[in-house]
Amino acid sequence: MVLEVVKLTVIEGQQENFERDYKKAAQYISASKGYIKHSIHKSLEKSNEYIQFVEWESLEDHTVTFFESELFQEWAKLLHDYYDPMPTVEHYETKNLLSE
Rank of each mutant, 00 (worst) to 15 (best):
L98K: 09
K46G: 01
V54Q: 00
P87A: 07
P85T: 00
E45L: 14
E12F: 00
E57P: 00
E60F: 05
N17A: 14
A26N: 07
E100Q: 13
W75C: 01
T63Y: 04
Y82E: 00
A76L: 02
K23I: 11
L78V: 11
H80R: 14
E68R: 08
L78P: 06
E57A: 13
Y92K: 08
E16I: 07
K33R: 14
F66Q: 02
V89S: 00
K24L: 14
S43M: 06
E90D: 08
R20E: 15
S69E: 07
V2T: 14
S32H: 08
E60I: 05
D81Q: 15
V2P: 00
W56H: 09
P87V: 01
T65S: 13
T88W: 03
K33I: 07
T65F: 13
I36C: 03
G13Y: 11
Y92N: 02
E100V: 12
H91G: 00
E60S: 15
R20D: 02
V6W: 07
D61R: 06
L79D: 06
E16A: 13
Q73L: 10
H62C: 06
L98R: 07
E16R: 07
Y35E: 08
W75G: 00
D81H: 15
H38V: 01
L71I: 05
E49T: 07
Y35M: 04
Q73F: 05
L79Y: 06
A31S: 12
L78H: 02
S32E: 03
V6E: 08
R20C: 01
S39P: 05
V5C: 03
H41R: 12
A76I: 15
E93S: 15
R20P: 01
H91Q: 10
A25L: 10
V89D: 04
N17I: 10
K77L: 06
K24E: 13
Y50V: 06
H62M: 05
H41I: 15
K77E: 12
